[in-house]
């Protein structure tokens, strides 16, 4: 069952006099439950793709169907509602709110969605236990290690039980060991059924995904699903 269907997506940026084609005629289908790594050099359009998939950005043309619903025509606030319910983000720099405790950071999507405090509390406690953060509930981000911060961020991204988890260089700010732990965590979530799309520079991490996409100049240069006979990415 397709979760994501992109058809003829065009996204151009105006940089001074020159027009940059961040995404050019992109077609892509990702099924529910897939584990996809997006790779490619800087400026290849992989971040733009991720922002587009996360409804943070709009294409100039083409359609994006998420769970069989055309989401390109939605208003800004309707897209926000889709993000709130169906999409989780994990960022390279964690993006935790510095003045809120770990528990409050995890609860933030539910707070924004207006979920009742009692339910929030129960679900945050559950998440803290699941991510091994029960002892750190009241700590603020500056009192946490990098690995703990990213675990808080992942807990926050999944607290609304999204269908799609988008991770942008999730291990970029972590050392090798903690990075592996975070990847294990993300893969565990994928095993539970969440569709996982990871943008990474790290070939080792990319190789762990079941499907690899390599982008170049706004186009898909390689898709491991489409060309089993093609070159494997290094």
């Amino acid at each position: 069952m397709p979760l994501i269907e992109l058809q003829q997506i065009e996204r151009r940026f105006q940089l001074g006099d020159t027009t940059v084609n961040a995404l050019a005629g992109l077609n892509l289908r990702i099924d529910a439950g897939e584990y996809v790594a997006v790779m490619g050099p800087s400026g290849s359009g992989k971040s733009t793709l991720l922002n587009l998939l996360g409804l943070l950005d709009r294409p100039q043309s083409g359609t994006y169907r998420l769970e069989n619903r055309d989401v390109t025509t939605l208003t800004v606030d309707e897209q926000a509602a889709v993000r709130s319910a169906r999409i989780g983000f994990v960022f390279q720099s964690f993006h935790l709110v510095p003045r809120l405790s770990a528990a409050e950071n995890i609860a933030l999507p539910m707070t924004l969605a207006g979920i009742a405090p009692a339910e929030r509390k129960a679900r945050v406690a559950e998440a803290l236990a699941a991510f091994g953060l029960s002892q750190r509930a009241d700590h603020r981000p500056d009192q946490l290690s990098g690995g703990q911060r990213q675990r808080v961020a992942i807990a926050r991204a999944t607290i609304m039980r999204p269908a799609l988890l988008l991770a942008d260089e999730p291990t970029g700010n972590l050392d090798r060991h903690t990075g592996e732990e975070v990847v294990d965590l993300l893969e565990g979530l994928n095993a539970q059924g969440v569709t996982l799309v990871v943008v990474t520079h790290d070939p080792a991490m990319g190789a762990r995904a079941r499907r690899q996409l390599v982008m170049e100049d706004g186009r898909l240069k390689y898709d491991s699903l489409a060309s089993d006979a093609g070159d494997a990415p290094r």
Binding site: G54, D77, R83, F91, L108, M160
Partner: peptide, 16 residues
């Protein structure tokens, strides 16, 4: 600014 971006990513509408 970063925090506002985060709130938007987490699904906060402009109104909120």
């Amino acid at each position: 600014t970063g925090e506002i971006g985060l709130l938007k990513a987490l699904g906060a509408p402009a109104r909120t």
